[in-house]
Design a protein around this nucleic acid. Sequence first.
DNA 1: CGGTATCCCCCGCGATACTG
DNA 2: CAGTATCGCGGGGGATACCG
Lengths: 213, 213
Amino acid sequence: MERWTPLVLRELLLGSHHFNQLRRGIPQMSPTLLSKRLQTLEEAGLVSRQSGDNGHWEYHPTQAAMEAWPIIDAMGYWGHKWARSQLTPDELHAGRLMWNMRRSFDLEHVPCDFVLYIEIADARQKRWWFVVKRKEADLCWNDPGFEVDISLYASMVTLVQVFIGDQPLLRACELGKIEIDGPNHLVKSMPAWFPRSKYAMRRLLAADQVLAS
Amino acid sequence: MERWTPLVLRELLLGSHHFNQLRRGIPQMSPTLLSKRLQTLEEAGLVSRQSGDNGHWEYHPTQAAMEAWPIIDAMGYWGHKWARSQLTPDELHAGRLMWNMRRSFDLEHVPCDFVLYIEIADARQKRWWFVVKRKEADLCWNDPGFEVDISLYASMVTLVQVFIGDQPLLRACELGKIEIDGPNHLVKSMPAWFPRSKYAMRRLLAADQVLAS
DNA sequence: CGGTATCCCCCGCGATACTG
DNA sequence: CAGTATCGCGGGGGATACCG
């Protein structure tokens, strides 16, 4: 399996259907290569490319691709558990982290709609906005113009550690690694909705079961 | 993930610990590359290389590798279901098929110890012997000298079709695709112990469940 | 915004030969 | 038998520029 292929499939299976959605999900991959990969996947019967309403292509996973989910998922879980420590700083790409966080808000525990601003001091692109609503969370690369309700300042590594469950959000705050500004009721509720990798959740559940047994 | 890597891991996880066992499991891979792969896997923390009793190396999967089994297994299952029809004749390697069959005898349903001879008319290496005992089945590349109890003649594709469950053994016999020589009680019992891919079994079980629901 | 064409380098991999 | 060294090619993939 060639480079990037699992990530492309993952993005497709998680609901990215347009070229630039896929790009946002895999920012380190060149558009040339993404285009080529999509062609290859189409020829292999994993992607169907349909003409969308606006004259552009829409990419959808085929049945074969959907049934490849157990592979992708197992790879994600394994990588989360075993490849994590080998992450080099330049592999920590802010855009990719944000894009993954976008998918991981626990919308059921969001107390109200709000705008979350995140500033990452040591990232190339430092400023990010999430527009969080009951039914979905949107990610913005530029100031969307809405008033910011809650702001968060942290380094890249800290954010990653929290996201993948290596460090609880509250602990990072106590250590001064994360600074948060916002109204009390929103700040208090953060642990309930702040995005965390599904693999982190799964590990916590596994740990709970061990403890409960 | 580079080429061959999943297959190397699979062999390791299924119990091949010596260089030449691995080679037999992946005969299309050059020894140079296998050696290199094993080094890479060692550096990646997936393989531990220990000095064996006879002065040679022994390769063992680490914990990380063992936990990669769900990935390998899912890939195997997916490949069995979706990549099967794309098999080109020159990918059908007799040695690889025999090596996989060796692992798949249903020893619980073997009525007695026996020697099975298989002749594949259109393979490079045509003659193969299995020495089947209650506790294990051995594969021989050359005549082991024991008396042959049951002989089987077939083409490469037929054997593959039967192994992967595309065609029942009995059906292939009726169609004259397989010829069998041996004592009646052994021949009758063949469907019970004749090797079939575990993925074929899994699909049959799944089909059964659908039918039963 | 949504892709594609071109160029070029590097290295993955196959083949062959060689060593203890 | 159990590997390792060397060589050469082909193509995967990164960078950049380009088109509608």
